[in-house]
Simulated scan of single mutants.
Amino acid sequence: MSKVVTLGEIMLRLSTEIGQRISTAQSFLSHYGGGEANVAASLAQFGHSVVHATKVPDNLLGTTVIQQLRRQGVDTSAVLVGGPRLGTYYLETGIGSRAAKVIYDRAGSSFAQISKNEWSSELLSDAEILHLSGITAALTPQWCDLLVELMEMAHQQGCKVSFDVNYRGNLWSQEDAGTALTKLLPHVDYCSAGKLDAIHLLGIEPCSESEDELVYYYQAIKEKYPSIEGLYSTKRLVHSASSHELTGTFWQAGYYESSTYKLDPIVDRVGGGDAFSAGVLHGILTGMSPQELIEFATAAAALKHTVCGDSNQFTDKEVTAFLMNKSGAISR
């Protein structure tokens, strides 16, 4: 299988039990994860050789992060040790009509304090894809510049760049995100971005026709950033915090859409988008047809919603079996 490098921050997630608020919780469920690390774990489950680059403190929390990555089959040789702390966030788990709520406590983390490239060019040696996200660009202006440097390094070594816009309103404004994306997207080959990203971050005029509107947005993004070879995102119809309908979309010289999965009940939504991104990258790396790719990626995302924790716990064979058996409620 292929070598992939992912780079991004890993944090400690402290979640309330269902029905509990942060203000009244007596205990929290703990998980470790981050968007790029979740993609790494999924791709390792799918059989790829995956290196995750990050930085963690020299304490028990940092050691636990490294141990978890290794248990998931991820190469930790590019994990740097140092700095003051591991970033944390609190998740108030939603239920019914009450949505989940996130509170970040990540300022000054070991990863966020990186201001220049601390990895050698060997990080990307023989890698086919480097996967990054907008969450990292949101941390500091220095990180945005560093991502551009890493993207350029990747292309110099013949490595493709995958980028998930992954906009988080709690981290930066739409204006700041849009400015950063004008620097980043010219260096991207595969991009996870949807309708709202196109309108609010990339300055694309809203589509006047509801039919085939995603085709319009994908084509507009491609015209604005011609280096992008493939675009993908999910359409999510939310009935309640624990009941969604999920459809995957992919554009590569044509528009492709997956079957729709009814996710009810959702065990843990965190990391569902990362499992989807990993499924897309797996399809690209293994030469799947666009339709096969989007069906696999959406099935992987649907399965992630059925387990606790931030990352996918299913192999490519399990995802394929789930897809072929049409397990769960699927509408076409």
Rank of each mutant, 00 (worst) to 15 (best):
D145H: 14
L146I: 10
L146R: 11
V148T: 03
V148N: 08
V148G: 03
E149I: 00
E149L: 11
L150I: 11
L150R: 07
L150E: 09
M151L: 08
M151Y: 02
M153C: 13
A154L: 09
H155I: 04
H155S: 02
Q156G: 13
Q156F: 12
Q157K: 12
Q157Y: 05
Q157P: 00
G158Y: 03
K160P: 06
D164E: 00
V165N: 07
V165M: 05
V165I: 15
N166T: 06
N166S: 02
N166P: 01
Y167P: 03
N170T: 14
L171T: 07
L171I: 02
W172H: 09
W172R: 03
Q174E: 14
G178C: 01
T179K: 15
T179W: 09
L181N: 04
L181D: 00
L181P: 06
L181V: 10
L181M: 06
T182H: 08
T182D: 06
T182Q: 15
K183G: 02
K183S: 12
L184M: 12
L185K: 00
L185I: 07
P186W: 01
P186S: 07
V188T: 13
D189Q: 03
D189Y: 08
D189G: 00
Y190K: 07
S192R: 07
S192C: 13
A193H: 08
A193N: 00
G194L: 03
K195N: 09
K195M: 05
K195R: 15
L196I: 05
L196Y: 12
A198R: 04
H200R: 14
H200C: 05
H200N: 14
L201V: 05
G203C: 08
E205R: 14
E205C: 07
P206L: 09
C207D: 11
C207L: 06
C207M: 02
C207S: 15
S208P: 07
S208A: 13
S208M: 12
E209K: 11
S210E: 14
S210F: 05
E211K: 12
D212A: 10
E213F: 12
E213L: 09
L214F: 12
V215M: 03
V215R: 13
Y217E: 08
Y218A: 13
Q219T: 09
A220Q: 07
A220C: 03
A220S: 14
I221D: 06
I221A: 11
E223K: 13
Y225N: 04
Y225M: 06
P226R: 01
S227A: 14
I228A: 01
E229P: 04
E229Y: 01
G230Q: 04
G230C: 12
Y232T: 12
Y232G: 01
S233Y: 05
S233V: 10
T234S: 13
R236A: 10
R236I: 03
L237H: 14
